[in-house]
Write a protein that binds this DNA or RNA. Structure first.
Lengths: 336, 336
DNA sequence: CTGAAAGCGCTTACAG
DNA sequence: CTGAAAGCGCTTACAG
């Protein structure tokens, strides 16, 4: 039995089998409504019969559209330990694929405005680019100005008319803090992340807003600034514990710092939640493995990815870029 | 000032500026050695001057090579909470990009041999495919047989002449278990993962090998089988604790189960490491946030990704597919 | 070592 | 609603 070369049918075979021209094949495959239903049916039948699959390179070359969407992630250690982007990417890729779009994975330094990835993106090889929030806005804006459809997963540093999808960081911070008041805390503090970045600032603002709602004026020293690391959570909590007016409830801007804070509480001989209650943010795996288990703000990350992909599709279709904020919920466990 | 259309130079402009034919431009850009150095220089100069970037679709169409490598990940909840693949992908993408290859992200159900992703991969749109270990071998083998360069990150279920890169699971299990003996444990047990899967089996085998080396015959009931979840670690540990011959050292096949095991130890009123010592596997973020901090086996995940990418390149270049095993190291902390 | 020319497999005005 | 034809921007035998 001789090996037969795989036939790899092209338009010409389909056209022949279906008894139409290649132009019509193309129209049918691209969903052109004008084709007569009977011919469309014939084409589809031929496609099935021949097991035809479109050559994307050829289509891209002829049409000028690559049907490729880039996901740009940061080449940075933080990525390596954060399941966040893997979940988002997964949701993105799934939705894009359902829309016959491919997902290209690009790894780039965060502040690179002029490196290889930037050039690649400017080269027009891609129909759109999705950026993960850690990126500086400069490159994103530049690309958007050049007409490339661009969506940010997360919030831009400064709102600049860019399309983005983000978790409701403000609402989440507020929710978490409100919970501390609800369970009877009287001296509520916060350990924030980088308040220069949007997510950190919004969580912080949400905290303040809940305080105001409860007619509570937090002390300045009760707002400690961390950097999202375990160590900073531990160290900032230690400082809070050392204060004369020791807080009895702390909103911590992510779970990793929250776990650090709990360690500090334990090390200092206090109990959580007896002496000090803690609410985290992310509802990561840490929330469940921590002792005590962490009450934390949950964001639906897969949904975030799906929403990002859908927004990208809309932007490509010419809709106006527009922010989308996804709701959070509070998962109550042991720590508060 | 009128907006000028971006010129988007092509071969014809370069050829003109450099005073050569388009064929020569192509040769230079593809690193063909035969071109006279002077002409090559002229072409490169023209390329720089015009800010030329190659149209990949056109090149792909003409050459039949897409310069696209797919990463196929599983559409499964386990992915969503495991930073493993994000780190691997990151390493893969970086190396591929350095070699002018693009990374395509494909999300597919694990046991799909005949779905859209499978068809896509068979369609020849991709120059190679990298699979993450959770995938069943069937699809991978099928593709390999069709001549598609294929590499597995992790181990195949059964060795089938496929190229793969994996952590030394066997060596890691051995290392971990040996450490338990070294610190004086007398009744050493194990909580394994799925021993039907390669990684789980190898870690388990490594455990046995260290036992043998120490002339220790583990009791059958001392080898508990978990499923890598926090709960299974906790439950299996509870069972071990209930035994008359209670172990004083346990090798746990991943950190998440190890943290669960520690909870069980605490809940039962024992101390870790005083009464029972624990060694985990992965050296994940949990290892550092756990109380006590976890002694754990570390694998270099980014390196794994880079190695996978390099292996892929070698396979594409016609080298014989061949397994690569990456070493592990033991990170000693508090739990053992 | 180099160029003229054909061709990769699609898409899309254009004309009807 | 449909087809003939030109063209997208490269690559690659082929001939020299």
């Amino acid at each position: 039995m001789a090996y037969t070369e795989k036939p790899k049918p092209t338009y010409s075979e389909i056209a022949e089998v279906a008894g139409v021209s290649e132009a019509t094949v193309s129209r049918v495959l691209n969903g052109d409504e004008r084709v007569h239903p009977d011919r469309a049916k014939a084409v589809k039948k031929a496609v099935d019969k021949l097991g035809y699959r479109r050559n994307r390179s050829a289509a891209a070359l002829a049409s000028g559209k690559s049907r490729l969407i880039a996901i740009v992630i940061e080449d940075d250690l933080s990525v390596f330990s954060d399941p966040f982007w893997s979940s988002v990417s997964s949701g993105v890729s799934k939705v894009l694929m359902e829309n016959e779009l491919q997902t290209l994975l690009l790894v780039a330094p965060s502040n690179e405005v002029d490196g290889p990835v930037a050039h690649y993106l400017e080269g027009g090889e891609v129909d759109g680019a999705i950026f993960f929030q850690m990126h500086k806005d400069a490159l994103v804006k530049k690309l958007a100005k050049q007409g490339l459809p661009v969506v940010i997963a997360g919030s831009p540093h400064k709102d600049a008319g860019l399309a983005y999808v983000d978790t409701d960081n403000y609402g989440g911070g507020k929710l978490a803090t409100q919970h501390l008041f609800s369970v009877g805390c009287k001296r509520v503090a916060a350990i924030t992340g980088d308040v220069g970045a949007t997510a950190g600032r919004l969580r912080h603002d949400g905290f303040l807003s809940a305080c105001k709602l409860n007619k509570y004026e937090p002390m300045k020293q009760h707002i400690a600034i961390g950097d999202y690391s375990f160590e900073s959570g531990r160290d900032q909590m230690t400082k809070l514990l050392a204060m004369k007016s020791r807080p009895d409830g702390v909103f911590v801007a992510n779970d990793l710092m929250a776990v650090g804070a709990i360690k500090a509480i334990r090390d200092a001989g206090f109990g959580c939640p007896e002496d000090i209650k803690i609410v985290g943010f992310d509802d990561s795996v840490l929330a469940q493995t921590s002792r005590p288990e962490l009450t934390s703000v949950r964001q639906d990350i897969v949904k975030l990815g799906e929403t990002v992909a859908n927004l990208m599709i809309n932007v490509i279709n010419g809709e106006k870029p527009q922010p989308i904020i996804l709701p959070t919920e509070l998962v109550i466990r042991e720590s508060a």
